[in-house]
Amino acid sequence: GTVKVQGITIKVPNPDKAYKIAKKLAKKYNLTVTRKGNTIKVE
């Protein structure tokens, strides 16, 4: 899958794990995490 952070896309082998990490970071930096299948977008 991929993770998008402010325009940066990161390929990740485990979208579930990445999503959990993204959620933690999002809370810390007051961002929104959206997930569509293997693509995770943080904005």
Results as ranks from 00 to 15, higher is better:
residue 36 K to N: 10
residue 26 A to K: 04
residue 24 K to N: 07
residue 6 Q to E: 08
residue 33 V to W: 02
residue 10 I to Q: 02
residue 26 A to L: 10
residue 42 V to K: 04
residue 17 K to T: 09
residue 39 T to P: 01
residue 23 K to N: 04
residue 9 T to K: 08
residue 8 I to T: 04
residue 38 N to F: 04
residue 21 I to W: 14
residue 38 N to R: 08
residue 30 N to H: 11
residue 32 T to E: 05
residue 20 K to N: 09
residue 11 K to A: 10
residue 30 N to E: 03
residue 33 V to S: 01
residue 20 K to L: 11
residue 24 K to V: 10
residue 20 K to F: 08
residue 28 K to W: 15
residue 32 T to W: 10
residue 36 K to G: 02
residue 38 N to L: 05
residue 36 K to H: 11
residue 33 V to T: 01
residue 10 I to N: 02
residue 37 G to L: 02
residue 32 T to Q: 09
residue 35 R to L: 07
residue 13 P to D: 13
residue 15 P to H: 06
residue 27 K to W: 07
residue 17 K to A: 11
residue 32 T to A: 06
residue 19 Y to N: 00
residue 39 T to C: 14
residue 6 Q to H: 14
residue 19 Y to C: 11
residue 12 V to Y: 05
residue 34 T to L: 04
residue 26 A to R: 09
residue 6 Q to R: 14
residue 33 V to N: 00
residue 15 P to V: 15
residue 27 K to M: 09
residue 28 K to D: 02
residue 14 N to G: 03
residue 41 K to C: 15
residue 27 K to I: 10
residue 29 Y to R: 02
residue 12 V to L: 08
residue 18 A to N: 00
residue 24 K to D: 05
residue 38 N to T: 06
residue 16 D to Y: 11
residue 28 K to I: 14
residue 11 K to D: 06
residue 6 Q to C: 15
residue 43 E to S: 12
residue 20 K to G: 05
residue 42 V to S: 02
residue 25 L to G: 00
residue 10 I to S: 02
residue 41 K to T: 15
residue 21 I to G: 01
residue 12 V to S: 03
residue 2 T to K: 10
residue 35 R to M: 07
residue 39 T to F: 10
residue 8 I to N: 02
residue 18 A to D: 00
residue 8 I to M: 09
residue 23 K to Y: 06
residue 42 V to D: 00
residue 29 Y to E: 00
residue 27 K to S: 07
residue 19 Y to L: 06
residue 15 P to I: 15
residue 12 V to G: 03
residue 23 K to I: 11
residue 12 V to I: 11
residue 2 T to E: 11
residue 15 P to E: 02
residue 35 R to Q: 03
residue 10 I to H: 03
residue 17 K to R: 10
residue 7 G to W: 12
residue 4 K to V: 14
residue 41 K to R: 11
residue 24 K to E: 08
residue 6 Q to N: 13
residue 43 E to T: 13
residue 13 P to A: 12
residue 19 Y to D: 00
residue 21 I to Q: 03
